[in-house]
């Protein structure tokens, strides 16, 4: 008959890092039920840690509450997040008759170029079954010499991210398995204003 590791032993293992007895440790290795119990306890321990670390102190709360009055007095967006650049479509290979030859399985590979003030976004959309692979290159014209990755997100109509990927330091990224559809893109940069593409049609 199987004797499971007792709840108290599992609790001590997870919450006090107490070693199990040799027999209990051996049982845990071979028993899916007990391992599941252990995993759930570890998740609970993590949840409790997140809760403790997330509890805002009174000073932080007071600062957040004071922001309202500051913004009321000075409504102009001061920080970069609000100050986004809008990139617009400036070139599309599908509008170039000579470039329409590349086809595979009904859908065609196409390229697009979006531009904002100091930055260009080059996209290549390639069919992969019923889904699409999106490859991109973020090209900063006046590179200040700081190579840093950017965060690229494709958002749904509610502005919630559906796909999210980090570029490399040169601005190259790839998103696999994208459902065709209409998205917005948001590109968060470390040292510069975020870039927004309000309509990005993946066909």
């Amino acid at each position: 008959m199987t004797v499971h590791v007792s709840p108290d032993e599992l609790l001590s293992l997870v919450f006090d890092a107490t070693d199990l007895s040799a027999a209990a440790a051996h049982h845990l290795e071979t028993c899916a039920h007990c391992r599941q119990q252990e995993a759930e306890l570890r998740l609970l321990a993590t949840d409790l840690t997140i809760a403790r670390l997330s509890e805002p102190g009174p000073a932080a709360l007071a600062r957040y509450q004071a922001l309202f009055a500051q913004v009321q007095q000075q409504p102009a967006p001061l920080q970069r997040l609000a100050n986004r650049l809008r990139a617009v479509l400036t070139w599309d290979s599908r509008q170039q008759p000579l470039l329409q030859g590349v086809r595979s399985g009904g859908a065609a590979v196409y390229r697009q170029l979006y531009a904002a003030e100091d930055v260009e976004l080059e996209l290549m959309v390639e069919p992969a079954g019923s889904l699409r692979r999106v490859e991109g290159d973020l090209i900063v014209e006046m590179d200040a010499g700081v190579d840093a990755p950017a965060l690229v997100e494709l958002l749904d109509s509610h502005g919630e991210p559906v796909y999210s990927v980090e570029t490399d330091a040169d601005g190259i990224f790839r998103i696999e398995g994208v459902q065709p559809g209409r998205y917005q893109a948001m590109i968060t940069r470390v040292h510069a204003a975020p870039i927004e593409v309000t309509t990005l049609e993946i066909v």
Binding site: Y64, L67, F68, Q70, P75, L81, A82
Partner: peptide, 8 residues
């Protein structure tokens, strides 16, 4: 930063 963005 998040609550500032929210206020704005």
């Amino acid at each position: 930063e998040v609550f500032l963005a929210l206020a704005q």
